[in-house]
């Protein structure tokens, strides 16, 4: 891999992702529950299905809230240079992306209820062909970066 970018995202990201994963855990739990009830009512559904679903749910309950957020955070790096934005992310598949500053069309910050709880915000960078996100930056930093990028991108902007 190329020399990774220097900046890390906020530590709070781990907590935010963990919370999100825990909330999303409702879906497999509910599905498993429904299937178990159905198995109880109808005879033709084999018990193996329920057992399989329970195993998947348990694995999911361990991996997605407790393992993945940490790994994700460790890999997540970014760097805003004068002429380009350099981003690295990914757990199993690592991806490094280089975006020339003059190609940036617009930058947004956004914040859902979970991120708001931890005073974090996501920075979205859009070019004419692609969209890139830097998740979970401290609110203040996200706003500053947004303004910085929009200033840098304005210099030397030629049309599409």
């Amino acid at each position: 891999m190329r020399q990774p970018p220097k900046q890390r995202i906020a530590m709070g990201a781990i907590k935010a992702w963990r919370l999100k994963a825990l909330i999303l855990l409702i879906i497999p739990v509910v599905i498993t529950g429904i299937v178990m009830v159905l198995t109880f009512i109808f005879d033709f559904i084999p018990y193996l299905v329920s057992i399989l679903l329970i195993v998947i749910t348990v694995v999911d309950a361990i991996v997605s809230p407790f393992l993945i957020p940490k790994l994700r955070w460790r890999r997540w790096r970014y760097e805003i240079l004068d002429e380009e934005i350099y981003v690295q992310h990914g757990v199993l598949v690592v991806s490094q992306t280089l975006i020339p500053m003059v190609r940036v069309q617009h930058v947004d910050t956004k914040q859902g209820p979970i991120l708001k709880n931890y005073q974090l915000a996501t920075l979205t960078i859009t070019t004419a062909a692609t969209t890139h996100e830097i998740p979970a930056l401290p609110e203040k930093e996200a706003a500053d970066l947004r303004d910085l990028i929009s200033d840098l991108a304005r210099v030397g902007q030629d049309d599409v």
Binding site: M1, R2, V93, V94, I99, P100, T130
Partner: peptide, 25 residues
Amino acid sequence: VQSIENKQHVLHRKQALGQVIVSLL
């Protein structure tokens, strides 16, 4: 060039290979 992305999974990293994606408009 709108962006260049370099993607590697675990095996790729061991073999120093990678997938490169050049994005255009």
